[in-house]
């Protein structure tokens, strides 16, 4: 049996098993912490940082999706500092990619009051839709770099290793070996990446085609 740990989240006492993440502990008392990259089936990369919260005694905000609870910890999830962080991260994201088909992120934008035009005019991630195989398309203009597809393709699920990262910084993107078309890679078209993509960046060809048809009509 795991030991239990008691802490406060937004001044409420909560007791959870050792090793529970702050996010799960918060959820157990009805406090929903927003996340983007997090997916329960995958190793959390903790890169979107919208789940960061204030932990007393810590210099920086802490990602609630991965940081485990500690005895006597005091966590605050809705301070101005936390709210500003979430808002600005969403503003940054909106300035970079097309979020039209990411309903969960849209909701977060509405909730935080993020100004999606605040950072307008900068470099965006611009890619043509890649339609290079019979099963799915890749529209990386909608890719938020949450890494889920890379993770499912690699150690977290499929062990197929068709995907990797190209470049770095803002130019980083999901890539294949030498950016080859999918059929030339090790891809086995399991589509586990499509199934776990939180935006419209990866989509089955049948769905994509019927949307295009609907648009034309």
């Amino acid at each position: 049996m795991k030991n239990s740990v008691t802490l406060t989240i937004d001044s409420q006492n909560v007791t959870v098993p050792e090793g529970t993440s702050i996010a799960d502990a918060a959820e157990s008392i009805g406090i929903k912490i927003p996340t983007i990259c997090y997916h329960p089936s995958l190793t959390p990369p903790a890169i979107c940082r919208v789940c960061t919260v204030e932990v007393e005694g810590q210099r920086t905000l802490q990602p609630a999706c991965v940081v485990p609870v500690g005895e006597g910890m005091h966590v605050k999830t809705d301070t101005d500092r936390v709210k500003t962080a979430r808002k600005v991260i969403l503003e940054l994201l909106a300035s970079t990619v097309n979020l039209e088909e990411a309903p969960e992120i849209q909701e977060q934008i509405d909730e935080t009051g993020a100004d999606t035009e605040r950072f307008e005019g900068g470099v965006k991630r611009h890619f043509e839709v890649k339609e290079d195989n019979p099963f799915y398309i890749r529209d990386y203009a909608q890719c938020i770099m949450c890494w889920r597809c890379i993770q499912v393709c690699a150690d977290d699920v499929q062990n197929t290793y068709a995907l990797t990262w190209g470049k770095r910084g803002l130019e980083s993107h999901v890539a294949t070996f030498l950016d080859e078309a999918m059929p030339n890679t090790t891809c086995v078209f399991c589509g586990n990446c499509v199934g776990i993509c939180p935006t419209g960046a990866l989509k089955g060809l049948i769905e994509y085609r019927s949307e295009q048809k609907k648009e034309q009509e």
Binding site: I36, P45, A85, R168, G169
Partner: peptide
């Protein structure tokens, strides 16, 4: 920037 976390990658 390595491009890992959003605030640094885009910020």
């Amino acid at each position: 920037s390595c491009g890992k976390c959003y605030p640094c990658q885009i910020g």
